[in-house]
C-alpha cells in the first residue's frame, strides 16, 4: 500500500454520506447507460415501436384510405371543384405516404404492427384504444356505398366521409406533435394539421352548397 493511499484511507467509522454518493454515482451510470445503449444499437433513430414509427405506420394506412376515397369520387363526379380537391388529396397524401415509408426504412422500423394500430397514442389521455381503429376511418360499408354511388350522391357522401377522415387525421398529427422532437416529423405533422384543417373548411363550405340534396348527411 502506498503512502498516498494510506493517507486517504478512513481512520474512523464509515460515514453514511459515502453510501449516498456511491448510490448517486451508480444511478447516474445506469441512466447514462440506458440513454446511450439504444443509440449504440440503433444510431440516432427513433425506436421501432416509438411514437414516430407508430405515427408513420398508422398515418400511411390512414392516408391510403383517403387516396382510395378521392379516386372513387373522381371516377364518379363531373364537378370540377370536387375533381380538383380529389386530385389534390390523392397527390399530396400519396406523396406523404412515400415520405413516411422512407422514414421507416431509414429508421429500420417495421412497416406493420400486427399488435394493432394506435398503440403509440395509447396511455395519453385515452385517445387510442389498443387494437382499436384509427380516428376518422370510414367503414368497409361506407367505402362500398361510396364506390357504388354516382354524381351528386357520391359527392355529398365523399364530403361527409372526408371531413370526418380529415378531422381524425388532424387529431393524429396533433398527437405526434406533442410526442416527438424529430424535426422531419414535426414539419410533416404540422403541414398535415394546417393543410387538412383548411381542406375541412373548404369541404364544409362545399357540403353546405349541396345541403338541400341530402339533408342531415
Amino acid at each position: 500500500m502506498t503512502e498516498a493511499e494510506s493517507a486517504s484511507a478512513p481512520t474512523g467509522p464509515a460515514r453514511p454520506g459515502r453510501w449516498a454518493v456511491a448510490a448517486l454515482l451508480a444511478l447516474v451510470l445506469v441512466a447514462a447507460g440506458a440513454f446511450t445503449v439504444p443509440r449504440l444499437f440503433n444510431g440516432d433513430r427513433p425506436a421501432p415501436d416509438g411514437p414516430e414509427a407508430g405515427f408513420a405506420r398508422d398515418m400511411s394506412a390512414h392516408h391510403a384510405q383517403a387516396v382510395r376515397m378521392a379516386f372513387a369520387v373522381r371516377d364518379r363526379s363531373d364537378d370540377e371543384k370536387i375533381r380538383t380537391l380529389a386530385y389534390d388529396i390523392i397527390t399530396t397524401q400519396q406523396s406523404q405516404i412515400g415520405m413516411m415509408s422512407a422514414w421507416l426504412d431509414g429508421w429500420r422500423a417495421p412497416h406493420a404492427d400486427p399488435a394493432g394500430p394506435m398503440r403509440w397514442m395509447g396511455g395519453h389521455g385515452g385517445h387510442g384504444a389498443p387494437g382499436g381503429t384509427m380516428p376518422g376511418m370510414a367503414t368497409r360499408e361506407q367505402l362500398d356505398e361510396l364506390e357504388h354511388a354516382q354524381g351528386r350522391a357520391a359527392e355529398t357522401l365523399f364530403l361527409d366521409l372526408m371531413i370526418t377522415h380529415h378531422r381524425g387525421g388532424v387529431s393524429m398529427a396533433r398527437a405526434v406533435l406533442s410526442r416527438t422532437g424529430r424535426p422531419e416529423v414535426l414539419r410533416l405533422a404540422r403541414s398535415m394539421v394546417e393543410g387538412q384543417q383548411s381542406e375541412i373548411d373548404l369541404m364544409t363550405r362545399m357540403r353546405a352548397e349541396r345541403n338541400a340534396d341530402r339533408p342531415g348527411g
Binding site: 444511478l27 439504444p38 444499437f41 425506436a47 429500420r108
Partner: peptide, 27 residues
C-alpha cells in the same frame, strides 16, 4: 451491506440497459 447494495444496483443497471437495447432492436 455493501455487497448486497451494489449487487442490486448492478442488477437494476443490467435490466434497464437490456430493456433499452431490446426496445431499440432493429427489424
Amino acid at each position: 451491506g455493501g455487497i448486497i447494495f451494489f449487487t442490486c444496483i448492478g442488477l437494476i443497471a443490467v435490466a434497464a440497459i437490456g430493456y433499452a437495447a431490446w426496445q431499440a432492436r432493429p427489424v
